[in-house]
Simulated assay, not measured.
Amino acid sequence: MEPTMEKLILEIEEIIPQQHFLSDEKLRSALASFETYESIGDIFVIRYLDKWFSIDGHHRLLHLYRQGVKRVEVCHDPADDDHFLYRRLAKESLNIGLKTIADLEDRILTNEDFLVDWVGKCQLMLKEHSTPEDNMRFFMSHHEALFDYENKNNHVFVGYSDRPWTYLSVDSEKGLCELLEQVPKVYSNFALIEDWMVKFIDPTDIRVRELICERLYLPASVEVQGDMSAVEELTLQDAHAIQNAHAYGEYTDIDYVKKQIDYGYHGGIRVDGELVAWALTHDDGAIGFLYVMPDHRGKHFGEQITAFIVKRMREDGLPVYVHIEKENLPSIRLAEKMGFVIDRTVRWFSLVSDKT
């Protein structure tokens, strides 16, 4: 399947600015550089919550609006729709009440203030943010390569945990298509796949054993507090109890659980010698397997264990992230309460010749 970059004509009033401030200096520069409508250059947008958001060209768009231009040609790359920073800023635009490019008229700053209040904010978000590349690096550091190919900013790695898993790090639809041409067909299990990638990996819709989750990360500035005195590390003898109680038996086995206890990060709470709550990282470093026995719920054991694991991971300089099934809203709300931020939707699946 070919990349789907498209050019569209949009009403300028239906474009919501994803940028929250403008620079007076850049606005003057944009005005001076325009000779004709055709000289404005490409303006890129994303689609988020069924709305169009501009992700660049905001100074140019405001100038066009001032000139009375009603419609403008824009570029849309569906791969940009899932970019964490674009989505987060778009969501904030809605939260602060931005509705059209015209709303930026009252949000023009001196260039000095613009660099602090806008550019600085974006740089901090990028610094604090964890991306799927962090998952891939963790997986690569603990698994031998069955296949490893890198081309410029695009990288594919296949390693074996409970089965051969294919991880992809790409910067565009074109990069994804180029990588997929290199991956041997025998490797049919894909990990941490974003929504926009699916149609390229599985154009005929033949995937099975699909698990769809929200990926949430914990910003570096967020401190996780709590009493961790009752939490202790797990042992290999705990593996059977974890696997038997785990809701994802279809996706894991006892050997997988033992591997995570062996090289991952984990914690548990025991009452009268019995393991009643636990969590441990998965093969890609995501905190998971969080479970509290029914008789012990409501005691904040989940928060205590999560804080314990976060502390251990940060001591080793690792980013912290979790994967939670999209339908598991209580767990997502709990993670958000602890300071985790939703990044993007990701999925794991296998390809087969048919669905039977």
Rank of each mutant, 00 (worst) to 15 (best):
L61P: 00
R66N: 08
V74H: 04
D80T: 11
W52H: 09
V72C: 13
F53I: 12
F84D: 04
T36V: 06
R47I: 06
Q67G: 09
E35L: 03
Y48C: 04
V72L: 09
F34W: 01
R47S: 07
L85D: 12
F53D: 08
F53K: 09
I46A: 07
K91E: 10
P78H: 05
F44S: 12
Q67N: 14
Q67R: 15
G68Q: 12
Q67P: 02
K70F: 02
I46Y: 04
S33M: 01
I46Q: 02
D77M: 10
R87Y: 08
T36P: 00
G68I: 11
I46T: 04
H83L: 14
G57F: 03
L94I: 12
R88E: 14
R71W: 07
S54D: 03
K70W: 01
K70Q: 15
L94W: 11
T36Y: 08
F44I: 04
G41Y: 02
C75Q: 05
S93V: 07
L89S: 00
D42M: 05
F53Q: 08
R71C: 10
Y86D: 14
L89R: 01
F84I: 08
L61N: 00
K51N: 10
F34I: 11
W52C: 05
V74I: 15
T36D: 11
P78L: 08
K70S: 14
E92Q: 13
F53P: 06
R66P: 00
G41Q: 05
V72P: 03
H58V: 02
E73G: 14
A90T: 07
A79Y: 13
S33Y: 00
P78W: 01
R47T: 02
V69K: 15
L64R: 04
A79M: 15
P78V: 12
E73I: 10
R60A: 08
G41M: 06
E38Q: 10
N95G: 03
K51C: 10
Q67Y: 01
L61E: 00
V45K: 02
R71G: 02
R60Y: 12
E38G: 10
G57W: 02
T36R: 11
D50L: 04
R66Y: 06
D50H: 10
